[in-house]
Design a protein around this nucleic acid. Structure first.
Lengths: 151, 151
DNA sequence: TATTGTTATACTCTATAACTATA
DNA sequence: TATAGTTATAGAGTATAACAATA
């Protein structure tokens, strides 16, 4: 009986045996469909992630958001600027620390988050339509067990 | 009892409920460690993928390799050039079709493939060290079930 | 007409180093 | 001296459109 684990003779060669490869392809497929699902909103994977983190951590600063999401400080700047210019985030100098910015989601930001979530749930349902609910839960659990994946 | 599926109160917000997010983070973590594992060889994820596909499909052309790996023709050009210039691939005009190139792995290419594979197996073992053998197989199976992930 | 490879181009994501202003 | 944010920059991955040679 042939299983996925001894698929050495496939068109991919030994590549087909590697978890990392399938992870990369699956992630890329998700990214493409995510973009399709959110087309017209101006939102992307990273922006949605930031908006989500700020929403549950009102008053959080850029660096902390980046830490949660694995985004470097330097790269946060332009992303936060985008969200502020889109009117989805509000940025004011932090009360306690005048170096830092306090970030909160605007009403438009909360509405955008809700709208995106509806679309994203449909997108995930579609991408995972070949998996049973149990399998989806299991996949999530296994993914969170991967080394180096802190958050 | 709290499970990964109802992690709405986490620091990530609703993001933590999304399979796509965990897929993206896990894939990124794999990519970073893959690069570390292959440091000094000059190889990257994409180049290794191409070398692997050509190795099991001697005489294949660029377009077909791209189709297997989900890489567009236009982007294949520079990648194949790299591998040829590294001496890992041989490229000659195809016998049957003078538009196409016939690709084969050189001896150096085969050696590189073998060397990379040793390193990659160690890298995968490390990244998946919190998963049992059964879980690793299951993860692979679940990943290949994801919609849109053709190869 | 369709296909293979090619060039040009642009956008996103990510990474590093150096700077400023505060702490 | 350490930290928050910033700027500049560079590399890698990916996307589209248009072209030449060949089928």
């Amino acid at each position: 009986m042939a299983t996925a684990a001894d698929d050495t003779g496939g068109e991919l060669g030994l590549l087909g045996e590697l978890v990392g490869y399938h992870l990369r392809r699956a992630s890329a497929a998700f990214a493409v469909d995510f973009a399709r699902a959110l087309a017209g909103t101006g939102m992307r994977q990273v922006l949605f992630g930031i908006l989500s983190v700020v929403s549950v951590n009102p008053g959080i600063n850029q660096g902390a958001v980046g830490t949660h999401l694995g985004i470097q400080r330097a790269n946060m700047v332009a992303l936060i600027n985008e969200l502020v210019e889109m009117g989805l985030l509000e940025r004011k100098t932090s009360d306690g620390d005048r170096r830092a910015f306090s970030l909160t989601a605007s009403r438009a930001g909360s509405a955008m988050l809700a709208e995106c979530l509806v679309r994203i749930r449909a997108h995930e349902a579609e991408m995972l339509s070949d998996l049973t609910p149990t399998e989806r839960t299991r996949l999530m659990e296994l993914l969170t067990k991967i080394r180096g994946k802190v958050a």
